[in-house]
Design a protein around this nucleic acid. Structure first.
Lengths: 214, 214, 214, 214
DNA sequence: AATGAATGAGGCTTCATTCAT
DNA sequence: AATGAATGAAGCCTCATTCAT
């Protein structure tokens, strides 16, 4: 009674995630267009044809990478927001922490830059990402901002636009790391960068009794 | 010394900039890899072969576009900073205004995204851009921040990192516009976005008498 | 000796004909090259590998389809001719009727077009078909023509060639239906087409007292 | 003053017809799907890429073969019909003669079989051929038949269907030659075959005073 | 006997680059 | 200096066939 399952069958079940891992690495390294499916297959120790048994084409493979890797983190964020009890700025911090540990510090950190770089040429990919990641991510931040404004914790600002101002430095950090990181800049101290960003936000968003507002 | 040069000679001298303009448009629209040199030549009303008389290959053309496009605007910023007299936050505003009118509202607005998207695959281009644009641009913002901290106008923060936090949303705005603009987001109201960014900065940077700092 | 065989055994014996039926349908629909063996297997409710247990490869399957499909109908025609008593034109009509009901109105109607389309690329198949179907079919028509000429019912014409002239419109009807039927043409009224063909033949073959012949 | 034009320029003008000739040969030999564009290019002494300078893709190449090779023959037929003065059966004979010499005895004779074989899988090709060749060809024959019926030279028959009966043996002759020609049959004596076909038609179509009609 | 995962050769098409004119 | 015809390498995707289970 050997504990080892049949290799063939084990393979079958392991393939998708092996392929997705290989694809993530190469997409992040080369971009969408410049990634060769044959290289993905090779990195997953599989032949070119095998890849097509699991994913219809390059685009489907990429979507799967997003679906398996990033969408769940957004969902986690939604759960965090739903059960959050403290003040709204703390919620923003929790969301950032989660994103940072699950995306920012993993290979997935390369995806935002990839999307930005290729969106124009692959609109189908771009809108998939928009629907599943961007719009849900913005909704999350928007929820925290609105909550804070309603409770008087934050000043009243245009929510949709403030969402972008809040998110942009975080995205920029990831984008930077996967493009110009060779050169000095942001990357030198991401922790401090995020800390300062949050610090500026704390002060920038805070409502003060005797102050006129924008 | 005739006032009107021979048309043929005028033509010849104009070629490089006509080619660069065509290349800028197409690189911004399609990205580096997806831009066809034949399209660049056609847009410049020139044959494919002619393009090779002026630029050794696609990458050389790409570098030339970068080289001619942005550096002068950085120089203008340096002049503005040198002769600025008012408070430091006003200097930040002036620098932003200049950048926005000379880059943000022209075809050059596409270059930052271009650089971000292609830096990995063209490291030489990336470091050229870093030397000539990024490091000088960061120095400018750093000058304004340091000036404000020295005068007591701004809180004391890590300057290098704050530079990035200040710049990131502005870059992100340009990047966004040239990638995901098809979908809702930042782009909906860039003026408001910049205003809120500066407003958050004004509050976020401002030193307050009885407050402990980061 | 149980009356009900084990289902498993029944299955096994039925496999070949199930596979041939599926293959016929798909070959007729798509042609030889464009038919995917996976589709054949799926339509026969069998796995791809199983198909190879019964037929060595695609070509062997193709041959088998031909072999099982048409030869029996030719044999029936031979029986009809052997016992025919009436005039020769009636024999031609009987042969046509039989062919039309057994082939022309069944899925086998697609085979002549299949053969015509693929003969060049599969010469072995072509000559198998020639030996077993074409030459015996031509002999049948030749028998009827010769019988009619001998009896004075038909004019004297070159028999071998007339066979082809008689057969061609009938083949063409089947071929047409499986190729250009999407567009207007023959197919609009096959009954009328055959009727006119036979009518022209009746007049065209008939011997007339005071006429010179070809 | 050499009479020889510049080779390069001569090349450019000759290419299209060289490519069409090579394509015709290979399409007729292998069929549409099985013809490799690289082989076409090689046969025209040209590289794979060059072919794409002249024809957008395989389908465009095929359409060009039809357009240059067959459509003009249909047009000739239309001119013949327009200026014909004699009896209607003579017109049918003239049309057949022209078709036979321009198509039947050239490499184009292989096209009808190709169309029949591939129509299902390449509907775009099929309908192009239908529009430009089949429908115009049928109209021609229909014109001759109607003319003969109107003048009392032919019996009254359903014209659309009779068109097919008249054309079918001719098409079948071409189809046969490009599929089963390896085996005995029609091909043995095409001249006699056509003569008998026309002879049967002459007798079959002819109106006779005291005869009941279909 | 049956399965279905895996393979890899092969074809269409694109495009940067060259070079004869 | 200018042209544009020609090249051929490269990538995506398909599918007949194999073989371990």
């Amino acid at each position: 009674m050997p504990a080892i399952p049949a290799p063939r069958r084990r393979r079958k079940e392991a393939r998708p995630s092996e392929l997705l891992a290989a694809a993530l690495d190469l997409f992040v390294e080369k971009g969408f267009a410049a990634t060769r499916l044959e290289d993905v297959a090779t990195r997953a120790s599989v032949s070119k044809g095998t890849l097509y048994l699991y994913y219809e084409n390059k685009e489907a493979l990429f979507k799967a990478v997003i679906r398996e890797g990033i969408v769940p983190v957004i969902a986690e964020g939604e759960a965090i927001a739903a059960k959050h009890a403290g003040c709204s700025f703390e919620l923003l911090e929790k969301l950032l922490d989660n994103w940072w540990s699950k995306i920012g510090q993993t290979a997935y950190a390369g995806i935002p830059k990839l999307i930005v770089a290729e969106a124009r040429n692959f609109p189908e990919v771009a809108s998939f990402y928009y629907e599943n990641v961007i719009s849900r991510g913005r909704a999350l931040v928007g929820f925290a901002l609105q909550r804070g404004m309603a409770s008087g914790e934050f000043r009243s600002l245009d929510v949709e636009t403030t969402i972008d101002v809040v998110i942009a430095p975080i995205l920029m950090l990831l984008i930077w790391r996967h493009s110009m990181s060779c050169c000095q800049g942001i990357e030198s101290n991401p922790q401090l960068y995020l800390q300062i960003h949050m610090d500026l936000l704390r002060h920038g968003l805070r409502k003060m009794e005797k102050e006129s507002q924008v």
